[in-house]
């Protein structure tokens, strides 16, 4: 039995009277690919922000990478990587400059940055583009690079906020191969997505509706529970009950 790397109990975040996140409880195991699903406005982003140490929970408790989300938000930041759909590196910097920047931010030495960058670019067969401005690369490549940059400092957990939005199916497939590889090397992946076929790739998924987690299990178990043939159906039957609008 693997240890829990994220463990959250009764976590809440209120904005005034509005309960953005309403008593969520779940655990994520080390090396797991955890799918965090929910409709827009269900509270996913708020929950992720709390787990990343960006915002303080209103109540509840939780640990991420062994640090308390209430007290040690700053320490958590050293152990996680983050990538979102909106962000795919700085367009006006080259591939290598982006890597140097994020390496520097996480306190890697010049040597380490150089070694890991070369290693990553070799794996992606992308060495020739090392001095290309990121802005001139296709979106799919940017997203793959962004994932590599987010894991450049070898974080224990990588948070991926809709990482494959707007990317073609072939690149999405390649992206998930990268996720599997990272997971097999022991990195925990915490991923949100709107693509239900991607949810099927996860070890376990949770589905959030109106700030609460309404379902949590492996895709196969969920389908059995809800008597559905795909996660898509499970999601829709749960999301139909949502009271919050878009």
């Amino acid at each position: 039995m693997k240890e829990n790397i994220i463990s959250v109990k009764e976590l809440c975040k209120n904005f005034g009277k509005f309960k953005a996140v309403d008593r969520i409880t779940f655990d994520v195991k080390r090396g797991e690919i955890f799918g965090f699903l929910g409709a827009n406005g269900a509270g996913k982003t708020t929950a992720i922000r709390m787990l990343c140490g960006l915002s303080y929970p209103t109540s509840g408790s939780g640990t991420v990478a062994g640090f308390d989300v209430m007290r040690n938000g700053e320490k958590i930041k050293h152990h996680i990587g983050y990538m979102s759909q909106r962000f795919s590196l700085y367009d006006d910097l080259t591939v290598y400059e982006n890597m140097k920047l994020f390496g520097g931010i996480y306190g890697l030495s010049k040597m380490q940055v150089e070694r890991r960058s070369v290693e990553i670019l070799n794996q992606l067969q992308f060495k020739s583009e090392i001095n290309t401005l990121v802005g001139s690369l296709p979106l799919g490549w940017k997203q793959k690079l962004a994932f590599c940059v987010a894991s450049l400092h070898r974080p224990e957990i990588v948070f991926l906020d809709e990482p494959t939005g707007g990317v073609d199916p072939v690149t999405r497939r390649q992206f998930w191969e990268m996720i599997y590889k990272a997971s097999s090397e022991g990195t925990t992946i915490f991923v949100t997505t709107h693509y239900m076929d991607e949810a099927e790739y996860c070890n376990r998924v949770s589905i959030m509706v109106d700030g609460q987690i309404k379902a949590l299990d492996s895709p196969a178990e969920l389908k059995k529970q809800f008597n559905a043939s795909a996660i898509d159906e499970v999601f829709r039957s749960l999301a139909r009950g949502a009271k919050r609008g878009e």
Binding site: L54, F87, F159
Partner: peptide
């Protein structure tokens, strides 16, 4: 552009 979030997640 959303890059601020990524910077804020960093230490």
């Amino acid at each position: 552009t959303g890059t601020m979030d990524v910077l804020l997640v960093s230490p």
